[in-house]
Design a protein around this nucleic acid. Sequence first.
RNA 1: GGCCACUUGGCUCAGUUGGUUAGAGCGUUGCAUUCACAUUGCAAAGGUCACUGGUUCAAAUCCAGUAGUGGCUACCA
Length: 863
Amino acid sequence: MTELSKAYEPKQYEDAIYKKWEESGLFNPDVCVEKGVTEPKSEHFSIVLPPPNVTGTLHMGHAAMLAIEDVMVRYHRMKGDRTLWVPGTDHAAIATQAKVEKLLIENEGKTKYDLGRPEFLKRVEKFAQESHDTIVNQARKMGASLDWSREAYTLDEKRNLAVRTVFKKMYDDGLIYRGHRIVNWDPKGQTVISDDEIVYEERKNKFYTFKYGPFEIGTARPETKFGDKYVVMHPDDKRYKKWKHMQKITVEWINAPIEATVIKDPMIDMEFGTGVMTITPWHSHEDFALAEKYKLDKEQIIDKEGKLLPIAQEFSGMKITEAKDKIVEKLKTKGLLVSVDENYINRIATAERTGGVVEPQVMEQWFVNVNKPVKERGNKTLKELMQDVVKNKKIEIVPDHFEKTYFHWIDNLRDWCISRQIWFGHQIPVWYKGEEVYVGVDAPAGDGWQQDSDTLDTWFSSGLWTFSTLGYPDLKAEDLKNYHPTSVMETGYDILFFWVARMILMTTYVLGDVPFKTVYLHGLVRDEQGRKMSKSLGNVINPLDMIAKYGTDATRLSLLLGNTPGNDMKLSEEKIAGFRNFTNKLWNISRFMLLNIEEPKIDVKEPKAKTLADEWILESLEIMKSLVEGSIVKYNFAIAGEMLKEFTWNHLADWYLEIAKVEGGKSEILNYILNNILKLWHPYMPFVTESIWQEVYGEGRSLMVEKWPSSVHSLGSFGDERNVDFLIVKEVIEKIRSLRAEYKIEPAKKIGAKINIGKKEKVVKDNEDIIKALARLEKLEFVESGAEIALDLAGAVDVEKEKPRLEKEIAEIKKYVTGLENKVSNKEFVDNAPKAVVEKEQEKLSEAQSKLAKLQEQLANLK
RNA sequence: GGCCACUUGGCUCAGUUGGUUAGAGCGUUGCAUUCACAUUGCAAAGGUCACUGGUUCAAAUCCAGUAGUGGCUACCA
């Protein structure tokens, strides 16, 4: 029999174990069937990994994601399900391109234009490849049991085919259209971005009031005001009653008098400013909407670089930032400036990836129409399809309050602009020749066709992820049939809109099915002060560092326990260190058990209990098993882990193993318990459990594919009488230990004790040896009067110390008894509460009363 | 402005459908080290469950309101 080393050294085992798992092929469900560890007809369980961006390395958030998903996957695999977890990475178009552009400037002082499109793309691909390699290595370090044979990339050929196929389908269905619409232009990134890629920043801004003919108008953006020839007010505003809708007036303005048109529309807030504003349809979403409504002219004022166009005359060519003050100055000189509010705070739209200030522009772009009925899908619009599957519970969101957020987002959803003016990404599958436009999966035949130079929003390809990874567009693909819809989508709540919603949109439309049955949303991993982890704050905890220092299992536990669905969690190195201690504890528990197991065996049935302690531990194990499994299937991974930990550390290590030292002869029970806890812990701590398993049971069988030990009892079928008996033994020991500590008796010193336990005397007598050993007694006497438990001390009890201690205890219990007496004598309580509750209360009262009597007797004896 | 979540001992959090004297870990205090583990064990101190009101025999738990914190969202130019 091999003996385990004194402390667990993760480094000695982890890489080798992972390599073995991977080489065995058992991460692949097909291999599991081939090798007979999974029945071919068993249920399918599938997760598609949210693909990390190839912009760098994995952070703790990714680590948490991998840990949570791996728990589910390993549980289901052991459960016997055909379990598939598909890995992959995301090209993250804008983010990756922006990162490479930044590096190019920093390292070589060059822009992408210096390199040209083909050369620049080579650089991006090289960078993406390196990031990819780092990421998959990190995922392996985390112990993630991903089926690498199915690895995918959002920009590889298969995914590109899926993208082109879906684009064509949507175009044919009239869901994708090209049009001049107002979009979010990022002058810094030189591309259009979607509404979701905007980050709003609150900034202090000057708010001006200008004279505009007979009106006073307010604005924070005088630089856009050149073309303002519409003045808008609320139709019910009495102050402006005399002006009629569409009435024309001539007003003096920045460069010359202009003919302005009065528009009356209820969108105007009468309370704000003067209740009058002018509009700039080309550079404001709201103004654009108004202009569409009344068929107003739209004029471009600002170009794509953020410079003023010739319409600004003397300001033409100036950056809007520098022109602003000059324009105000000019209006002031002309006597048109009324007032300036210096403390106005407004929200500036900035591009998430580049930080550029977004300038709305009217441009010709490609859009997905979210409000057009789709014939093939019962004339439902994409919006309706997205709403329906969540409303009718085909998709369950955990935690469920995110459903509200989801619906709210859909309600406010506008057509989705999918074209981007960046180089890295899926090129739009559209070709032009003169006036002709061709949309197809493949390029059109013949010469002279030019492909659209734009690329697709990265979320277009991510939206297909659950099915593009499983064989689409081949609708007969085995994987698509077997593993779609996927069982669970586990991801961060911060990408509910970006991604989860878009997968639902794409899948309900393309396949007429849901992409997943359950969405489990995790929170963000923050530092110990609750701040986001960021390089600039220097508070980033790197998963690889923690793995090197404390081991993967400890790192995983720190991310799994104390982490509840939808809530952010705080992580500190101390927490990880704490779980390293537990990992080592499990190791040492196994080490001790191994020393007491005659012949380690797998596939053992529950052994017969010989003593009360045996019964107690076996029953505790069963109860724990059924609670743990119940929690896992309900996505309460933290609770399941905590119950396991409680059992392992408190029940097993602190009590049962100590008792085993006294009672002896526990080989079979220990073997059975070890078998069980290694399996139960495996999804949480795959490395240490597999290491122990192979040390103990040999290397022939991998714990990873052992059968999950479900409880043979259903919950609630446990009789608790014997369990309670053991708790009495435990209480006696605890009480004696407590008294010893209070009397400051040396721990090693053996003393005598007297016990007055009434009808439970037999239980205590049967377990006398245990009590003597664990409480360090040389003699235990049973008496019929006096204190419940009293210690024989060498000298007399120190009355001075003992009296106040007893008095305090009596006072406390008196309070408790009084409370119970009031409760039990309360007629309303007795009448209304369930019988069982009333009986329980009465029982508690009589117990407390007898305890009180004993204490009082003890106090009297002292005097 | 709207919506959502959160508020429990010094810190991090449990507390499942209302029913023992509200639990755990870390930290703190005291004691212990040839016996699986000091990456340990034993014992202890520490909480008016944010506040106010309501429902109920019974509220940390349900309802309403208030305050604070965090987040999402919106067309106040």
